Measured scan of single mutants.
Amino acid sequence: EPLWIRPDAPSRCTWQLGRPASESPHHHTAPAKSPKILPDILKKIGDTPMVRINKIGKKFGLKCELLAKCEFFNAGGSVKDRISLRMIEDAERDGTLKPGDTIIEPTSGNTGIGLALAAAVRGYRCIIVMPEKMSSEKVDVLRALGAEIVRTPTNARFDSPESHVGVAWRLKNEIPNSHILDQYRNASNPLAHYDTTADEILQQCDGKLDMLVASVGTGGTITGIARKLKEKCPGCRIIGVDPEGSILAEPEELNQTEQTTYEVEGIGYDFIPTVLDRTVVDKWFKSNDEEAFTFARMLIAQEGLLCGGSAGSTVAVAVKAAQELQEGQRCVVILPDSVRNYMTKFLSDRWMLQKGFLKEEDLTEKKPWWWHLRVQELGLSAPLTVLPTITCGHTIEILREKGFDQAPVVDEAGVILGMVTLGNMLSSLLAGKVQPSDQVGKVIYKQFKQIRLTDTLGRLSHILEMDHFALVVHEQIQYHSTGKSSQRQMVFGVVTAIDLLNFVAAQERDQK
Rank of each mutant, 00 (worst) to 15 (best):
V333T: 12
V473N: 15
T294G: 12
M419C: 13
Q507G: 14
G308V: 00
E508C: 11
E250F: 07
V420N: 00
D499H: 05
H468V: 05
F295W: 14
E258H: 14
F346A: 04
V319C: 14
A431V: 14
L353S: 11
P436W: 11
V339G: 09
V241M: 07
V504S: 08
E401G: 14
A431T: 12
N424A: 13
D467S: 12
L347Y: 08
G312N: 01
P273F: 06
L380M: 14
L501K: 04
V504P: 02
V319N: 04
V473G: 12
T385Y: 05
G312Q: 02
D411Q: 02
S287H: 11
G308Q: 01
E401P: 13
P388R: 11
D242I: 00
L380I: 10
A296V: 06
V280H: 03
V491D: 01
K320S: 15
T391S: 14
I238D: 00
A505M: 08
A497N: 09
G245N: 07
L299R: 04
V241A: 03
F357I: 07
E465V: 10
I267Q: 04
E303I: 01
R459A: 13
Y479D: 05
A505G: 15
E265Q: 05
F469C: 15
V319A: 15
V472C: 09
A321L: 13
Y445M: 05
Q450C: 11
M298L: 15
W370K: 05
R459W: 11
Q476T: 11
R374C: 13
L417W: 08
A431E: 10
D455F: 05
E475V: 14
K366T: 13
P243R: 02
A497H: 07
E465D: 14
T257D: 13
A311N: 05
T482D: 06
P251E: 06
F503G: 04
G240V: 09
L378G: 04
I463Q: 14
G245M: 01
L417Q: 14
E365N: 01
H468N: 15
S310V: 01
T391Y: 04
I334D: 00
K512E: 14
F469I: 13
S428F: 12
V281W: 02
K402L: 15
E327S: 04
E324W: 07
G312I: 02
L384A: 04
G458W: 07
D337R: 04
G268M: 00
A382V: 15
I300H: 04
T395E: 02
L353Q: 10
H480I: 11
G308E: 00
A505K: 06
H480S: 11
A470Y: 01
G328N: 14
F271Y: 06
L387E: 14
G266R: 01
I267L: 05
G441L: 14
V281S: 07
A301G: 14
C307N: 06
H468F: 15
A321E: 12
V420S: 13
D270K: 05
I416K: 02
D510I: 05
D337W: 03
Y445V: 14
E412I: 15
P336L: 05
L500H: 11
N288E: 13
M343R: 06
P436M: 10
E365F: 09
A407N: 02
Q326P: 10
F469E: 14
G356T: 07
L399R: 03
T389D: 13
N288Q: 15
A296M: 04
T261P: 12
K355R: 15
R350W: 15
L417E: 06
S461A: 03
A292K: 06
K355E: 14
T391N: 15
V280M: 10
F404W: 11
L501E: 01
W371I: 09
E377S: 13
D411S: 12
V375W: 05
L387A: 11
D362A: 12
E252W: 13
E324Q: 15
E360W: 15
E253S: 10
V415C: 11
Q439F: 15
G418V: 01
E303N: 07
R459P: 11
I272A: 02
N424P: 09
P436T: 12
G309K: 03
V415E: 15
Q435W: 09
S381Q: 13
L430Y: 13
D467R: 08
A431Q: 07
V264Q: 11
T482E: 05
Q323H: 13
T294H: 11
D242R: 03
T389H: 14
T364Q: 12
K286P: 01
K366H: 06
A407C: 15
L422E: 13
E360F: 15
S427V: 07
R488V: 13
V494L: 15
D467T: 06
G483D: 13
K442D: 14
M425A: 11
K320V: 05
W284N: 00
P336W: 05
K446H: 14
I247M: 11
A301F: 15
E377H: 06
Q302M: 15
L353K: 10
L426M: 14
P336V: 02
Q450L: 15
A382P: 14
Q302S: 15
L353H: 03
P273K: 06
Y479R: 12
L384P: 07
G493F: 13
C331S: 02
V410P: 02
L380T: 10
M490L: 14
G328F: 09
L460F: 13
G240W: 07
G266E: 01
K442Q: 15
R350Y: 11
P408W: 12
D510Q: 03
F271S: 00
I238H: 00
H394R: 14
Q447I: 12
V332W: 00
M466T: 12
A413I: 11
T389M: 14
T279I: 12
F346R: 04
T496H: 06
A311E: 03
K320H: 04
I247E: 09
L500S: 05
T456H: 11
E397H: 12
C331N: 02
Q326F: 08
A249G: 08
G458I: 07
S437V: 15
V386R: 06
V410A: 13
G379V: 13
E475Y: 07
L358S: 03
N502D: 15
N255T: 02
Q487V: 14
L417R: 13
A407W: 01
P243N: 07
A506Y: 04
M490P: 14
R400T: 03
G414I: 12
M343P: 05
K355S: 09
W371N: 09
M298I: 15
K402S: 12
S428C: 15
L384H: 07
L426H: 13
K449T: 02
S246T: 05
D337S: 04
G414W: 08
V332A: 14
I498P: 12
L254K: 07
P336A: 06
S287F: 13
L373E: 14
L335H: 00
L248N: 02
A382W: 09
G458A: 13
E291M: 10
E258N: 14
T395I: 09
L378P: 05
E290D: 14
I272L: 12
I416C: 15
D289C: 00
Q302E: 06
K345M: 05
E244I: 08
V491M: 13
H474K: 05
H474W: 04
T344N: 03
L500W: 07
I272D: 05
H480L: 09
L387F: 15
L417M: 14
K367H: 02
H474P: 11
S428E: 12
K484I: 14
K283F: 12
S485M: 12
V339A: 10
V332S: 03
G304I: 02
I396A: 08
E412L: 14
L306A: 07
W369A: 11
G423N: 11
